[in-house]
Design a protein around this nucleic acid. Structure first.
Lengths: 319, 319
DNA sequence: TGAGGGCATAAGCTGGGGTTATGAGTGGCG
DNA sequence: CGCCACTCATAACCCCAGCTTATGCCCTCA
């Protein structure tokens, strides 16, 4: 495991547990630099691209290699190429940097300058999972478009649009709020998820809607969009049983599902990563389709123009 | 846009272009701290959780708020809660931290200590997209399992397993290499993708396999797993046309698809993010299914036991 | 054979992020 | 009622990571 102590592990010791992550992962700057090296094929060029000097880049890469214990680039007097391992590390680094880009573009929009040319209001789910990607795309397509973002539930989105405080809104749900026009830009689906250890993940016969309805679940609090769709869909199956636990945030629900051994119903967008990592498992339900539309919305009669139109065009056909 | 200069933009100016990302995004340490605050409800507790002092945490959060220009936490003499905006920022931060965790667990496995209890060999695609998630899951389920990872093509995976240099392998492809047993653990699918501006994304009739075969594509070099599956699938449709461009890495292919206006065929795993952000668009092809199995493999007769068995159990049913 | 691009090393500066020490609010409770 | 326990903020100080400039060596190519 973690270095010095090769013998039968003495301390807590599980791979540097306790040490916060950022001591074991290089800086964002270092990761960016590594990507630049991969792209440009030379430490010096990468350095210039990052606005630092060649020795700085050299030492940064070297210390990253020391920290990770892996040779990342093969230096030659004619440039630098990635190692076999370096290529893999670079791919993982790219994902960190991409997440950081999403963070950046998101918070920049959140800063919400009054002089923004495009003011967006979105539901939490969309703002969290989809908008940053769209904004990155918008930035590459129409650089210099200043966007401001605020998030809230469907009601808040409608209010801001009607008050003229926003140009374009995004909501997920079953219908378009009064006073607004909209266009479907994609679809979301609620999925039943459970911890991998839960018996539902080993069933041979598909779960029925009635069984689902009768089981106490871990859910978001009443009033959330997710909850509405679920209530409506299970009304015919005897109605939803009292929840085992009601939590305020999606994240809280997810970790509760993992630790408490009860299932939940969540947006596909919210659990995609957990599903592919098998931290959660989807439980198919016979004949139950919990789809819901993702919609762009705007004030009746005010079809989006300019930047709002650009963004709308970008989002059509999402998921 | 970027502050000071509100007028018609003078300089390059597009939202701090040129300034490398890591100057506009807080440190991983700061993001982790923010998550801890969100989870624990107090700066002091979060500080302790990160192994720093309360004043350090206080100043770190404050300077992050200054940097982002957004109030993130609401301090009270009885604890700290996230702001509305803070909740959103925290969600975005969580994704960065999760990517960093994947990076961490991946590079740690790559470090490849000889004394590892579990030696894994995987194809590039699986190592890149799936393995980190599994390793994180494995770490929470069986903490302290030292894993070493090496990556290569199917041939290399087989060789290492047969040489007894690895305990468990993962490959994607159509069949199990000679000398190995295996189990299907999931499915991947090749998808035809194009830039959003490409005419194929606006077709009213579905693309046919013959049309796809006749079109020069941007592809990975011959010999890659992706290429094999594609060749096989289109053999009946007249065979694949000469590629427009042959590139060595998936990343290179992706960016070429975006800039050159030619389509490509790539693993669903590799383009999922690009698809949801609409940087790429999937083009459905009539009656063509480019599925391929993801398999865990091991030496004939050596069913995985111990840690290998744990990991195998974790991966079953992936995507 | 010299010029130029590539990388490494060395010496020195700077600032961000850490520390300790302290003060000032607020709610619970004997 | 007054103390305690908890919160957060401020101030003064320290240290090292990461930057810079200056230099040298290596290789390739005209």
């Amino acid at each position: 495991m973690s270095g010095e102590n090769a013998g039968p592990r003495s301390e807590p010791a599980e791979e540097g547990a306790g040490v916060p992550l950022h001591h074991r992962v290089p800086d964002l700057g270092a990761l960016e630099l590594l990507l630049a090296v991969a792209r440009l094929g030379s430490l010096g060029r990468a350095a210039r691209a990052q606005g630092i000097t060649q020795p700085a880049a050299s030492s940064r890469i070297r210390s990253m290699e020391r920290q990770l214990g892996v040779a990342l680039v093969e230096r030659s007097p004619r440039g630098s190429r990635l190692t076999e391992a370096g290529a893999l590390v670079t791919d993982w680094a790219r994902r960190v940097v991409e997440a950081a880009e999403a963070f950046d573009v998101g918070t920049q929009a959140l800063r919400g300058r009054r002089d923004s040319r495009l003011r967006v209001v979105a539901s939490m789910t969309i703002a969290e999972y989809l908008l940053p990607g769209w904004l990155i795309a918008l930035r590459t397509q129409r650089p210099g478009t200043a966007v401001s973002l605020s998030a809230g539930n469907t009601r808040a989105v409608a209010d801001r649009l009607l008050a003229g405080e926003a140009d374009l809104g995004f909501v997920e749900g079953l219908d378009v709020p009064a006073g607004l026009d909209g266009a479907v830009i994609g679809h979301d689906r609620l999925v039943v998820v459970a911890a991998p250890s839960h018996p539902w993940t080993r069933r041979r016969t598909e779960l029925t809607a009635a069984e689902l309805a009768a089981t106490p679940l871990i859910l978001r609090e009443r009033g959330s969009g997710t909850r509405q769709v679920l209530d409506a869909a299970l009304a015919g199956a005897g109605g939803l049983a009292a929840p085992l636990l009601e939590l305020a945030s999606t994240t809280a629900v997810k970790s509760a599902v993992v630790s408490e051994a009860a299932p939940s119903v969540l947006s596909e967008l919210a659990v995609r990563e957990e599903l592919t990592a098998r931290r959660l498992v989807e439980v198919p339900v016979r004949g139950l389709h919990l789809g819901r539309e993702l919609r762009a919305v705007w004030r009746v009669g005010q079809r989006p123009v300019g930047p709002a139109r650009d963004l709308l065009g970008l989002t059509r056909g999402a998921p």
